[in-house]
Design a binder for these strands. Structure first.
Length: 562
RNA sequence: GUCCCAGUAGCUCAGCUGGAUAGAGCAACAGCCUUCUAAGCUGUGGGUCGCAGGUUCGAAUCCUGCCUGGGACGCCA
């Protein structure tokens, strides 16, 4: 089924050991234009070895090559272009997908090994913003992709439930808060207090000291502080649960920063024992000057810990608990330096697994070209956006398909899918300008386009005659061939997206497959009653399987009717 | 000031481990529903690949410098 490899081997047999099979394989490319065939071998590098013109080499090679999976081989300038046998290849591809079904594209590469993924990780007492959405959907997709690649994925929601922010919150609550208001609308009121703190702290700097005091109290187990913290945390978690329910995301662990509270002394002690700590302006740091990096702050001058300390404790704990092969941190690119420091410190602590940690950074969601600031209260709430998307999807369904039975359910799949897909379709490093209209578009390169295509395929399959499965004979027209070639690519796409920790690779793939299929659909009468009907239906079935599976990996549902 | 990321069609982006003629979607214009879901399809127009050098048979892709935008650079996370 790996025709590229077969092509490489075929070429190899005619080169008398001039080049290794792997080297040939690496050179083989897919021609840009389909008039150039399906596989191309450029002869430039051979030209040097043979001291012959590449055009001449291509000519000679093309006449020698002869394999059943190839229809013909043509020399085109310095290239040897191979044309696959459409009949044989399409039959194999269609049969394989219909046999393997949703397991098509799965790999055993990660079998028996674990990956941990740290993602979503919202801050308690702050609303779930658009910024957290990115970490959440990218992380979830990467977890699915890891599983597709054979790994066991462990999804960790490293809640921001500890830190100086709670000192600020407690300070603000004691100053201006009321229990009643918080009970009524927890997140909103807590966030209001948080924003208010920052406003007031600009005028009254002593508030910052008070916040530090309260966080210190919290860390040393002050009962009043602890009670407030617990309450804030519970209320926030209830709100987050709604979002995850809407997005259809589950976690294996909600162990956040507070969970590591009792593991901090151990880490600090360990750093001391390994002689890595030094004092600097009253704070305890790991000096990284030798690595050309600013020092990593471990303890503040008041003795309270910092997030680097907690991340160190978390990494060690996860390594011991899960014995991961790889550990991903899906966190914004602004924390790049932090993770470089973190990984370096772990290396200095002589943990050999430090090399398997990987920061997966992503770009910002910008507002008017600038980063959104939580502290100033400038956030767009994810829940509002999702609700708007679902509502808009519902309106569309009502006008476009009033007959549809389960409109609410489908509207949810479409609305949520639109938001997830919009986030995942571009490279994660890119910054995104927040634009609701853009997110809620239901035409062009969108999640809905893919869902629609899938529903179309399903619709045809429903209308297919209930004949017993007649043997698939393969298809040779150019429209099917384009679809077949894209279908063939799916396993490579999975691998690429895993290797690059890049869900957009899959998003782009399902768009391409949808596009190919829609062109096919527009040209070929699939249900025509002729000898190739069963082959066409098997092709449609293959497309439906792969689209659904591709969307599933991204975290998007694929309704059968739209 | 140092470091990181980005700059490709009017807009949003692919293409970047070097390869043949730089591609999609949106927007604009012109078409296609008595025939499988028109949320679709077909066609037209639209490009100094930020700028300048360099490496190479060959550069949007690699290297250097510069310009522009965003971000990070010790007691926030």
């Amino acid at each position: 089924m790996n025709y590229r490899q077969q092509f490489a081997e075929e070429i190899y047999t005619h080169l008398q050991g001039l080049s290794k099979v792997e080297e040939i394989n690496a050179l083989i490319e897919e021609p840009k234009y389909n008039t150039h065939g399906d596989l191309a071998f450029p002869c430039f590098t051979l030209a040097k070895k043979l001291k012959k013109a590449p055009q001449q080499i291509a000519k000679e090679l093309s006449t020698k090559i002869d394999a059943s999976f190839l229809e013909k081989t043509v020399a085109e300038g310095p290239y040897v272009n191979g044309f696959l046998n459409k009949q044989i290849v399409s039959k194999q591809v269609i049969q394989r997908i219909n046999t393997e079904k949703e397991n098509y594209g799965s790999s055993a590469a990660g079998a028996g090994k674990k990956v941990t993924l740290d993602f979503s990780s919202p801050n308690i007492a702050k609303p779930f913003s658009m910024g957290h959405l990115r970490s959440t959907v990218i992380g979830n997709a990467l977890a699915n992709i890891s599983e597709k690649y054979g790994y066991k994925a462990i999804r960790i929601n490293h809640l921001g439930d500890w830190g100086t922010q709670f000192g600020k919150l407690i300070t603000a609550y004691k100053q201006w808060g009321s229990e009643e208001k918080v009970r009524e609308n927890p997140i909103k009121e807590l966030f209001h207090l948080y924003v208010m703190f920052h406003e007031q702290a600009e005028k009254h700097p002593h508030l910052e000291d008070e916040a530090r005091f309260w966080f210190k109290q919290l860390e040393s187990g002050n009962e009043e502080a602890l009670q407030l913290w617990k309450w804030f945390r519970e209320e926030s978690l209830k709100e987050f649960a709604k979002i995850y329910e809407l997005l259809g995301i589950i976690f294996d662990s909600y162990d956040g920063e507070a969970f590591y509270n009792d593991k901090m002394d151990g880490i600090v002690q360990e750093l001391k024992d390994k002689d890595l700590l030094s004092l600097s302006d009253g704070a305890e740091v790991v000096n990284l000057a030798a690595e050309n990096m600013p020092p990593c702050l471990i303890k503040k001058k008041d003795g309270a810990t910092l997030y680097a300390t907690r991340d160190l404790a978390a990494a060690v704990y996860r390594s011991r608990t899960y014995h991961f092969e790889k550990s991903f941190y899906i966190v914004g690119q602004e924390q790049r330096l932090h993770f470089e420091q973190l990984f370096l410190v772990l290396q200095k602590m002589s943990y050999n697994w430090a090399a398997s940690l990987q920061h997966v950074p992503f770009g910002f969601i910008l507002k008017d070209g600038k980063k959104m600031s939580t502290r100033k209260g400038k956030v767009v709430l994810l829940e509002d956006v999702i609700k708007e998307a679902i509502d808009l999807a519902y309106q569309n369904i009502k006008t476009k398909n009033p007959e549809l039975e389960n409109k609410e359910e489908v509207a949810k799949m479409v609305g949520v899918g639109a938001i997830i897909f919009h986030d995942l379709k571009n490279e994660r490093q890119n910054n995104i300008e927040f634009n609701l209209d853009e997110m809620l578009k239901f035409e062009g390169s969108t999640g809905l386009y893919v869902q629609y295509t899938h529903a179309r395929a399903c619709s045809i399959l429903r209308k297919a005659p209930a004949k017993n499965n007649i043997a698939v004979s393969g298809l040779t027209d150019s429209y099917s061939w384009t679809v077949i070639k894209t279908l063939m690519d799916f396993p490579n796409v999975i691998e690429k997206s895993f290797q690059q920790a890049e869900p957009s690779v899959i998003a782009k793939y399902v768009l391409k497959l949808s596009q190919d299929f829609n062109k096919y659909y527009g040209q070929i009468k699939i249900l025509a009653d002729d000898t190739e009907q069963s082959s066409r239906l098997a092709l449609v079935k293959s497309v439906a399987i792969v689209l659904k599976e591709g969307l599933r990996l991204l975290g998007v549902k694929a309704p059968e009717k739209l």
